[in-house]
């Protein structure tokens, strides 16, 4: 079942669709979108209902649909539909679970501010979660900018845009240090003025304003200037989470790497293609586990592989067909 000669890489995964069916060849992608949009929805239900209720009770529809008006009023009186309040910087779930982004927490410390206990608890919970599950799981399963850069990567492939002036992959660590230095020097959370991740998520929930242009810049940069440029080269938040996930337990592995037919589909879709080779081709390691902390555990390689080489597993899973 090797790839037909000359098949363009613009549509990776055709082989997998033929082998496994469309749904199975998009399983992890769909799950990821459900996760990203679901998390966004949890934040959005509260304010959306709040505004709907305000509009509805004041409109003439309230008189025409008394049953709905009653229900709306009842929900309103019981406190609305606030499952998660806040945004990814800090949130409060069901009025009990406080979460704080450990990266913003670190910037706060760099800026010389000692936060209150709630933020410490929240940052610790998030940090421990990503330490165990994999830091960059944030990037591919939570971060709203991922959908923008995925769209840019998809468009690049479909239209055969090859222009690539991507900076070195380590640039992001320099940027990470840069944001902390900027926080220390200015004594403010300087990066949060510009952080497209924060702007995107906050904007979707609290109002975007001119923030949309930050996201347009990220999309255009990824589309025309650098392949996977933002998430894969620059984003200091991704750099932070990759450091957090250095020892994470949840990993993608290539246990059936002997079956690999070198179709390169996994490299085409992978947002960090350099992480695959050591595990798949035994380059410098025997283990089939992708151990590089830059792997976002998006699972797209599992989807597009017609040979079912990859699977999601734990860090110590050494099963391998070769």
């Amino acid at each position: 079942m090797s790839r037909a000669a000359g098949k363009p890489l613009s549509r990776p995964g055709q082989d997998a669709i033929a082998q496994k069916g469309w749904l199975a060849a998009h399983k992890w992608l769909l799950l990821r979108r459900v996760s990203q949009l679901g998390i966004l929805a949890l934040f959005l239900i509260g304010p959306c209902f709040h505004h709907f209720a305000q509009w509805f009770t004041a409109s003439r529809h309230a008189a025409r649909w008394p049953a709905v008006a009653d229900l709306v009023e009842k929900i309103r009186e019981s406190g609305g539909l606030w499952f998660v309040k806040g945004n990814l910087a800090s949130s409060l779930t069901l009025d009990v679970l406080p979460l704080t982004d450990p990266y913003i927490f670190l910037q706060m410390l760099a800026a010389g501010f000692t936060p209150a206990a709630t933020a410490v608890t929240g940052a610790a919970i998030v940090a421990v979660f990503y330490l165990l599950v994999g830091g960059r799981v944030f990037c591919s399963w939570v971060c709203p900018v991922n959908m923008i850069t995925d769209a840019a990567a998809w468009t690049r492939r479909r239209f055969g845009i090859h222009a690539n002036h991507a900076p070195p992959a380590n640039t992001r660590y320099g940027f990470l240090a840069g944001t902390l230095i900027a926080a220390a020097v200015t004594g403010t959370l300087a990066w949060e003025w510009l952080n497209p991740v924060a702007i995107a998520h906050r904007g979707l929930i609290f109002g975007m304003g001119a923030g949309i242009w930050f996201l347009v810049i990220v999309f255009v940069y990824d589309l025309l200037f650098a392949q996977r440029g933002w998430c894969g080269r620059l984003c200091p938040m991704g750099a932070f989470y990759s450091l957090l996930g250095k020892t994470a337990l949840l990993r993608v592995a290539a246990p059936k790497r002997a079956a690999c037919n070198d179709c390169m589909d996994c490299f085409a879709v992978c947002p960090e293609p350099q992480v695959i080779r050591p595990a798949l081709k035994k380059a410098g390691q025997e283990s089939p586990v992708i151990r590089a902390a830059l792997c976002t555990t998006c699972g797209r390689c599992i989807d597009v592989c017609g040979q079912k080489v990859f699977r999601l597993t734990h860090r110590f899973d050494q099963r391998s067909s070769s």
């Binding site: 380590n170 240090a177 300087a190």
Partner: peptide
């Protein structure tokens, strides 16, 4: 490159924030 990028980043972000 990373170090240079980081310095530029710190400078740009710092000035913007200021």
């Amino acid at each position: 490159g990373a170090a240079g990028g980081g310095c530029l980043m710190a400078l740009g972000v710092g000035l913007y924030a200021r």
